[in-house]
């Protein structure tokens, strides 16, 4: 049953404590939250901008708030949640720095997953073909991408060290398994557990 879920979901579920409170920013149709609710017995809450995705969350019996991430965090009191999750959504928010800072304030720990722009196939597409890369983790064309920010695994690590954000754990993901060798080159996705 477990293997039905994608690798990033399974890793995230492994990071979240049992009975923890979780806020998923950009929760989509709620697949991850449903997993955390069932498997981790977590108290989950999502924020999602897409109408249809919100309806799907409600159909899953999830607690979801319709709205965007950039304006979604300001209201919460400090340490309202054990975890905030930004899985494949950080690169789509307008103000990354504010969202990161607020997330670290509102939750004890933050879990972040993003597509690695420095993945070697992306590099090759720019270098050899002179084209904006399209990869499994960055599946969009330049004209229809929802992504506003493009970052690599090294970018994120550097950002954390500059802003005194503690990286507690990091995972590098290929299309179906974890990677350990030259992650900034070979990983399609970076997944981080951070705290302040």
């Amino acid at each position: 049953m477990k293997s039905e879920y994608p690798l990033d979901y399974r890793i995230i579920a492994g990071l979240v404590r049992t009975h923890a409170s979780v806020l998923d920013l950009g929760c989509g149709s709620g697949g991850l939250l449903q997993l955390l609710e069932r498997q981790n017995k977590a108290h989950v809450q999502g924020i999602e901008i897409n109408d249809q995705a919100v309806y799907s969350c409600v159909a899953k019996g999830l607690c979801v708030l319709h709205g965007d991430i950039d304006n979604g965090l300001v209201d919460y009191e400090n340490k309202s949640f054990d975890y905030i999750i930004l899985n494949q959504s950080l690169q789509q928010v307008r103000n990354v720095e504010a969202v990161l800072a607020q997330s670290l304030q509102v939750a004890h720990k933050v879990i972040i997953g993003f597509p690695n722009f420095a993945y070697y196939k992306a590099r090759a597409q720019i270098f050899f073909r002179g084209r904006t890369p399209v990869t499994p983790s960055l599946p969009y064309e330049w004209y229809n991408t929802p992504n506003l920010h493009f970052l690599s695994i090294y970018d994120f690590i550097a950002y954390c060290s500059r802003h005194r954000i503690r990286i507690e754990k990091m995972f590098f993901l290929g299309s179906s398994r974890r990677l350990f060798f030259l992650p900034n080159l070979f990983a399609q996705t970076g997944l981080f557990l951070i705290s302040r």
Binding site: D51, V54, Y55, V58, L62, C63, V64, L65, H66, G67, D75, Y76, E77, S80
Partner: peptide, 21 residues
């Protein structure tokens, strides 16, 4: 309605919010 939702967030009330287009 967002004002109500905002208060729910701060007060920790279990709320679902949906804007219908």
């Amino acid at each position: 309605l967002q004002e109500i939702v905002r208060a729910c967030k701060i007060a920790g009330v279990n709320a679902t919010y949906c804007e219908i287009d």
